[in-house]
Simulated scan of single mutants.
Amino acid sequence: MSRLFRDVEGGVLFPQGSVVCIGAFDGLHLGHRALVRHAVARARELGVPAVALSFEPLPREFFSKEMPPPRLTLARAKYLGLRELGADGVGLLRFDGKLSAMKAEDFVRKLLVERLRAREVWIGPEFRFGNRRGGDLSLLQAMGGELGFGAGEIEPVQRGGERVSSTRIREALRGGGFTEAAHMLGRPYAIGGRVVRGRQLGRTLGFPTANLRFPKTPALSGIYATWVHGVAERPWPSVSSFGTRPTVNGVEPLLEAHLFDFDGDLYGRHIEVEFVAKLRDELKFPDLQSLTGQMQRDAADARRILHVIVPDQEARASMCGFPTEA
């Protein structure tokens, strides 16, 4: 189990020393993964823990509260992803007024040296930190020479002749380029979370949904053909709406997945919704009847894209894991 911490200041966390990597890690794309894996490999060679440092909220969210930029990954998914990559410690540092005003030199001394006992620090291309983005590789190397740690920058990961970045992935998702996004992420784009109770309007319309909250600005919105992971041995075909539900006056972004031919209680279950294809943008309909008609067309489109036929009663019962009637 990786050790999670939130504060720059405090007691020593890794007295034996550590190898540290720092980044926003939004999406944990191939570039992020290369950085973390490099730090983990160096830590194993040195016989010390590997520590991944990030921020929550992200700095650009803190400085743009009125119009926060889109997020690919929520904090929990980021933590789990960093842990799966081998990080022994994960710092999701509280980015607030105090941290934003901290000089890069103080960040190095208080956190990297005093708290983490860093022996090496690794960053990605063009990474900056500290007040007014005053910290960079040159500063780390200069202070490392004085304080006893090494610092380095990994080579950028390229796809399609350009550096892999969260910005490129957001642009691909916005345009429905899920294959392109998957190539940069190293996996299909998916959003995970615990299923919560909604207004149950979908159930009354004949389209019950598994709902996931997304308390950040999402990188995409609309209606999608999707696969749901975590409800059966294999991914479950579905059609999903992701957005603010303008027809029913929604506000907070909500991901609503309607699982085809599924009969079961998913409340409280942790699932992942994998995006396959965009069907259309989110629209406001004049009434629920119009909305229902469009939902039926969306479901038919998603079934066709996912190659899912409407099963008969016996096949449906078998898919859901329930015995058919004798």
Score class of each variant (00 low, 15 high):
M1Y: 10
R3C: 09
G11L: 08
L13H: 08
Q16M: 11
G17Y: 04
S18T: 06
V20E: 01
R37S: 04
V40I: 02
R42A: 11
G47L: 10
V48M: 03
A50I: 01
A50Q: 05
V51Y: 02
A52L: 04
S64K: 08
L74H: 14
E84Q: 14
A87E: 02
D88Q: 06
G91K: 10
L92A: 04
L93D: 10
R94P: 02
F95E: 07
D106F: 11
D106L: 14
K110P: 03
K110Y: 07
G124L: 06
F127Q: 09
R128E: 07
G130H: 03
L137G: 00
S138H: 15
E146L: 15
E146P: 10
G148L: 14
A151Y: 01
G152C: 06
V157L: 07
Q158F: 15
E162M: 14
R163E: 14
R163P: 07
I169L: 09
F178E: 03
E180P: 00
L185Q: 04
I191K: 02
F207L: 07
F207Q: 09
R213V: 11
F214Y: 13
P215V: 05
T217W: 02
P235G: 11
W236Y: 10
G250T: 08
P253Q: 09
H258V: 07
H258I: 04
L259I: 10
D263L: 15
H270N: 11
E274M: 02
F275P: 01
K278C: 00
L279C: 07
L283S: 07
L291K: 00
G293D: 06
A299F: 10
L306A: 01
H307C: 10
I309S: 13
M319W: 13
